[in-house]
Simulated assay, not measured.
Amino acid sequence: MIKNEKIRASEVHLTGIHGEDLGVISTVEALSMAKKLKVDLICTSLFSSPPPCRLMKAGTAKEEVQKAKPKSGKQEQNAKVKEIRLTPQIEDHDYDTKKNQAHKLLQTGKAVLLVVRIQGKEGPKAKELLERLLKDVVDVGSKQTGIQLSGKQAMVQVNPL
């Protein structure tokens, strides 16, 4: 947020305190208007010429910036995908542990990416393992994509219900 004397442009497109358009005026004139009204001159964007500026209280501008930040943070949290890695030669106990991890993650609302590392001709075995795991977590999640076999891994994404 650039305000007052830090604005380097010679002219600005000014918007008043109540949102009225005051047109294009010199920066010096806009700063003197801001001082008369006891408010700040705040530049809203640097990507246009002349840059659009507003007359507003400094506290109001900071509040607008803070209101915008929490919204973006919440959106990022919802998009999290946790990856669980397995191998085709997994033991029963290890399989149960991975299944329980996937179960817990899906119950908390996170998507899970199940990845099986493949070496050689283990493709069919890996696909079988993923199908078995999908059947075990069907009560808390549904697959977003089909099982994808690509090179050295097989994977499927499971979204919470």
Rank of each mutant, 00 (worst) to 15 (best):
M1D: 07
M1A: 10
K3C: 09
K3G: 06
N4M: 13
S10Q: 08
E11F: 11
E11P: 01
H13G: 08
L14A: 09
T15I: 15
T15K: 12
T15Y: 15
G16D: 11
I17C: 06
I17Y: 06
H18F: 11
G19W: 11
E20Q: 10
D21N: 12
D21L: 04
G23D: 07
I25V: 12
T27R: 11
V28C: 00
E29I: 07
E29T: 10
L31W: 04
L31F: 03
A34L: 06
K36F: 08
L37R: 12
L37V: 05
D40Q: 04
L41G: 05
I42E: 01
C43V: 10
T44A: 01
T44K: 03
S45F: 03
S49L: 10
P50C: 02
P51L: 01
P52Y: 02
P52M: 04
M56P: 07
M56H: 07
K57F: 12
G59V: 03
G59M: 02
A61P: 12
A61V: 07
E64I: 14
A68D: 13
S72W: 13
K74L: 14
Q75S: 11
K80L: 13
V81W: 05
E83L: 00
I84Y: 09
R85H: 12
Q89M: 00
Y95D: 02
Q101E: 12
A102S: 13
A102M: 05
H103Y: 12
L105E: 01
L106S: 02
Q107E: 03
V112E: 01
L113H: 02
L114H: 00
L114I: 03
V115H: 02
R117G: 07
I118K: 03
I118V: 13
I118Y: 01
P124Y: 05
K125E: 14
K127W: 05
E128R: 11
E131C: 06
E131H: 11
V137I: 15
D139E: 13
T145P: 14
T145V: 12
I147Q: 08
I147M: 04
S150P: 04
Q153P: 05
Q153R: 15
M155Q: 14
Q157E: 14
N159A: 11
N159M: 12
